[in-house]
Design a binder for these strands. Sequence first.
DNA 1: TGGCTTGAGTGATTACTATCACAGAAGGAC
DNA 2: GTCCTTCTGTGATAGTAATCACTCAAGCCA
Lengths: 210, 210
Amino acid sequence: MPDELTLRKLFPNLEDGLYEELLQYGNVRSFAAGSVILKKGHPIRSTMMVIEGVVKLSQDDDEGDEFFVYHLEPGQACALSMVCNFGHEKSEASAKAITDVVVLSIPLQYMEKWLGEYKSWHYFVIKTYRSRYNDLLQTVNEIAFRNMDERLEFYLLKQVKQFGNHVKLTHQEIANDLNSSREVISRLMKKMEKNGWISIHRNSFEWLRK
Amino acid sequence: MPDELTLRKLFPNLEDGLYEELLQYGNVRSFAAGSVILKKGHPIRSTMMVIEGVVKLSQDDDEGDEFFVYHLEPGQACALSMVCNFGHEKSEASAKAITDVVVLSIPLQYMEKWLGEYKSWHYFVIKTYRSRYNDLLQTVNEIAFRNMDERLEFYLLKQVKQFGNHVKLTHQEIANDLNSSREVISRLMKKMEKNGWISIHRNSFEWLRK
DNA sequence: TGGCTTGAGTGATTACTATCACAGAAGGAC
DNA sequence: GTCCTTCTGTGATAGTAATCACTCAAGCCA
């Protein structure tokens, strides 16, 4: 359960009154590691501000494949769930709790109301969009121009940055995130291990290279 | 040279005073078809609102390859050039005039000033982000999950939607936009022609399918 | 008209990735 | 320990796209 001090640390530079309203009208919601927060095709009724844990955003296709787009960490908010004040669109992507997660869920009417009342809020919203937009651009870059070995390297580095040198992921999970196949990932990681970049364990790997 | 009426038509629902300020402080800039409006790596000093013509946004890699991301048409604005009020970032992408283009260029200080003064302006900015964000998500979807034949079909349809049934593009240009090669595009388009979807001319093609 | 440039068509080859088919290893359950 | 499930490693094969090497066609222009 977040208090005002936590909010101030995670989401700095908002107006005083806004912190109070966030606490008053936001709903604290917890998700266990592995659970689905937002599913493709479902309507979005609130904005998520991440308080604790890591949320994985994926782009889904019609066959149920999930393509990793980016992580949200504490202090970040979901851009997808900010679009809906202008319509009642459905989610194109899905969000999943990777670790245990606590979010502050802001009902859309407040989301919109505060846009008019708090300058810091609309800066926050715009900043959120900007960050997620840049993340997406980088993703486009990688899948448009890079081969699987480079994409895997970028991907693993993102995981290491998020979870530390020892990352718990199976080859199958990595393959899903990159829309590839387990065998391909297995081979490429074996090569990285031979080069001394990583060491491979069951269900996890360790990043060795500086 | 746009007048207030034109602006009102292209960018509806802004406040009265804002139209006047747009005309007063925005700079009208024209670009000939084919010229480069914004280049990767250059700092962004203003926001572009498209008045006339079509602007192509591309994501560039380090080797100079350009990957088509989306079109901007009259009444739209460039999300990329809206990020900079929070820093002095450089462009990750490039913008090119496809037809003769007229844009209203808004210096960043006004861009930011109006965010505080005009509610309609920050809605406009957020709406712009939202649209471009969704465009990007669709792009990710296509390159992550689709084969070249499907991506080509999507691509050609986007061109047709933008320029009408008869589109002037060489196979080489299409290949560049999709980060593919001329021969591949040539073969796939030949197949589409055999299926009666298009007819191929020198420097152009025609969309036949309903 | 003939040369020249640019764009398009097509076969052959190569590279990368996906898929199939297993074998073997690790670890939990009993 | 033994069984069983899950994860990983690896060869063989197939499919898609990129690259190479040409030929041919269209249109300019002198």
